[in-house]
Design a protein around this nucleic acid. Structure first.
Lengths: 338, 338
DNA sequence: TTGAAAGCGCTAACAT
DNA sequence: ATGTTAGCGCTTTCAA
C-alpha cells in the first residue's frame, strides 16, 4: 500500500537499527549473544519495516532448508491423505514446510520426483509409495538426506520405516473369519506385486488358513484394482467361487463389494462376511458398516515425521523400523457372536 | 557409493569441462548461445558427475523458486483433496513444485502460513480456505506474488478465483426439489459465516423458494458441521420440522443424513429427498446413492493453477473470476419422475 | 560464442 | 556483545 514493493533485506534492518547484519541475524535466530537493549531495538525496526527473512538465502547460507519432501501416490486416496495429515501436523510442529509431490501409478517418475526434491535441497524425505525400483532404492540409501517410509515396509530393513505388522493383521482377520465358521474365504486384493499385498498380507492369509486347517488355493485370491466399480465387478466371481467371506485389502474396493453383495440380495453378515483393511471413513458410510483392520494412519504419518526430525538432527533412533499397534474394529459386516 | 558424498557444483562441472560457470549455466538453462560442440562436452561432464543444479542457489540468484504455495483446510477432506489433485497435475506439467500448508479450522494461523510461504519465496499462491480475514485479504492484495482462490469466491472481485456459481447451483437444487412436489425443504449447511454457505448457497435456496411461491423460514435452515455424526444428529430435527426434502452442502454430512433417515425407516426418495453438493465418491458409496451438484473439483484446481502460471508470467488474464460449469447428477435420493 | 565478475540475502567463522 | 568478512551455488550483465 505504501511504497513500490521493495523487498526489505537484512541490510536495511541493520542500517536502520544502527547495528551489523550479524547482529540482526542473531536476533532473528534467537541467538542469546545479544544485549537485551539492542535486541529490542532491532526487533522494533524489524517490526516497523515488516522485515521477513528470505528463507532461500538463509537456506543457501546455512545449508538447511527447513523443508522436507513428501512423495506419495494419489492425494485423493483416503489412505494417503490420512498419512499425510499426520505428517503435516508434526512437520508444522517442528517448523518444517512440506514439499509435496505425487505420482501417477506405474511410470517410473518416482526417481525423478526424488531427484527434484534433492535439487530443492530438502532436509529429509518421506516416502509412501508401494514399491521402489532398485534404482530408487539405491538413491535412497546413498542419499545425503534421511528418508523414512510411511505405511510401507523395507524388506531389506535398511531404510527407516513406520508401519504395522501387515502379516499378523491379515492373519487376525482371516482367523476371525475362520472362527466365525467360514471355510472358504476369499482374499480380494490390489496389485500383488505391491509387497504389502503380495508378500505380507498374502502370507498372513495363508498362515491363518493353515492354522485353521484349510487348504490354500490361489483360486480364492482375487486380484483387482482399488475402486468401487472393481468391487462390483468382482462380486460375481467371488460369489460363484462359493466363498462365504472375504478379506479385502482396500476400503473403497470393499465398499463396492458390500454394495454389490447387498444388491444381489446377499445377507451380510449372516451369509457373507467382509473385513477390510484401512478403517477409513468409508467403513462408517456403508450399510452395513464395515468391520476393518484399524491402521493408525494418522499416527503412522506423525511418527514417521517425528522419526525424520530425529534423523535430520543426527539423533540416534534405536529402531529403524517402527511397528505401530493395530486393532480390529468390529462393525456390521461380521457376525456378532464372538 | 563412490566418494564421500561431496556435492557437485557448477564450478566442478565448469572445471572438468574446461569452460566457465556461465557456459555451464547456459547449457543447463537451455540458452541457445552455446556452440553445439561445447554443449555436448558440458552435457557429458554433467552426466558423468551426476551434477544436479542446486535449486536454492538458483532461486536466490534468479529470484524465482519455481515453487508455488498452497494453503488449504484439512487435506483429508475429499473436497480439498480433489482440488489439490487438479492443482498438482497442472503444477507438475509446468514444472512447479508445491509447498503445501494446511490449517486447522478457526485459528488465525492462515496469515502466518501465508507469510511463511512468502518467506520461502514462492512464485505464487493458491488459496482454498473458506473465509479470509481482512488482514489476510490485504496481504493478498499487496502481495508481491499472485494469488488465486480455488473453489472460493472473492466478494470484492479483486483477487483471481476459480469456482462455480454457487447461487444458481443451490437454486437449481431447490427448484428440482420443489418441482418434485416438496413444499417444505430443509437446507442443511455448515458454518453460515462461510460466505459460500451464508451468502451464495443460502441466497440460491431463498431465490428458489421465492420463485416457487414458498415462504422462507430460518427454521428450515439447519447449521451444523461436516461429519457423519452431525448428519445423524440433525436428522431428528429435520424430520420433526416436517420437511420432506433436504438440500445439504456437504457430502459427508449428507451421507450421515441418508443413513440416519434410512435407519429411521424413512423411504428415500419416495418420502424424503436429499441432494448434496460436491459429488465426491461418497455419493456412490451410500445406499441409496446420492443425487448431487457436480462441482468439477479437479478442473477447478487445474484451472486455478493454470491461471496462476499466467499470472506469474505476467500474462494477461481476461477474467479475474472464472466460473466453471456444474451439473446436477441425479442418482437415487431424488425421485425419478422428472 | 564465451568468460569474468558482481551480486542474490543470508549465516558463520573469526576478530575484537 | 558486536562487527567484519568470506562464502553458499547460482544467474546475469557486461566485455571480449
Amino acid at each position: 500500500m505504501d511504497q513500490p514493493e521493495k523487498e526489505i533485506t537484512i541490510t536495511d534492518v541493520a542500517k536502520q537499527a544502527g547495528v551489523s547484519m550479524a547482529t540482526v541475524s542473531r536476533v532473528v535466530n534467537g541467538n542469546n549473544n545479544v544485549k537485551e537493549i539492542t535486541r529490542q531495538k532491532v526487533l522494533a525496526v524489524i517490526d516497523k519495516l515488516h522485515y521477513r527473512p528470505n528463507a532461500v538465502a538463509r537456506g543457501l547460507a546455512s545449508k538447511k532448508s527447513t523443508t522436507i519432501g513428501v512423495i506419495m501416490p494419489s492425494i485423493t486416496e483416503l489412505l494417503y491423505a490420512n498419512l499425510a495429515d499426520g505428517i503435516d501436523d508434526v512437520a508444522s510442529m517442528y517448523k518444517y514446510n512440506i514439499l509435496l509431490t505425487s505420482f501417477d501409478n506405474g511410470k517410473n517418475e518416482e526417481q525423478q520426483l526424488f531427484n527434484s526434491l534433492l535439487a530443492k535441497q530438502v532436509d529429509g524425505i518421506i516416502y509412501m509409495g508401494e514399491q521402489v525400483s532398485d534404482e530408487l532404492y539405491e538413491s535412497m540409501l546413498n542419499s545425503r538426506v534421511p528418508v523414512v517410509f510411511a505405511g510401507a515396509v523395507d524388506h531389506k530393513n535398511q531404510i527407516a520405516s513406520v508401519n504395522i505388522d501387515y502379516v499378523t493383521a491379515a492373519r487376525d482377520v482371516v482367523k476371525l473369519l475362520i472362527d466365525n465358521g467360514n471355510q472358504k474365504i476369499a482374499m480380494v486384493t490390489g496389485d500383488l506385486k505391491n509387497s504389502i499385498n503380495g508378500d505380507y498380507r498374502l502370507k498372513g492369509y495363508q498362515q491363518a488358513l493353515e492354522q485353521g486347517g484349510i487348504n490354500y488355493s490361489s483360486n480364492n485370491v482375487f486380484e483387482t484394482v482399488y475402486n468401487l466399480q472393481a468391487g462390483a465387478a468382482v462380486w460375481d466371481a467371488i460369489n460363484d467361487s462359493g466363498a462365504t467371506a472375504a478379506y479385502v485389502t482396500n476400503d473403497l474396493l470393499a465398499a463396492g463389494i458390500v454394495n454389490a453383495a447387498m444388491a444381489a440380495g446377499k445377507n451380510i453378515p449372516q451369509d457373507f462376511e467382509i473385513i477390510t483393511s484401512s478403517n477409513t471413513i468409508l467403513c462408517d458410510v456403508t450399510r452395513p458398516q464395515m468391520t476393518s483392520v484399524a491402521q493408525p494412519l494418522y499416527d503412522i504419518g506423525a511418527v514417521a515425521m517425528r522419526m525424520l526430525t530425529k534423523l535430520m538432527n543426527k539423533e540416534i533412533v534405536d529402531e529403524l523400523e517402527v511397528r505401530l499397534p493395530y486393532s480390529l474394529v468390529k462393525r456390521d459386516t461380521t457376525k456378532k457372536n464372538n
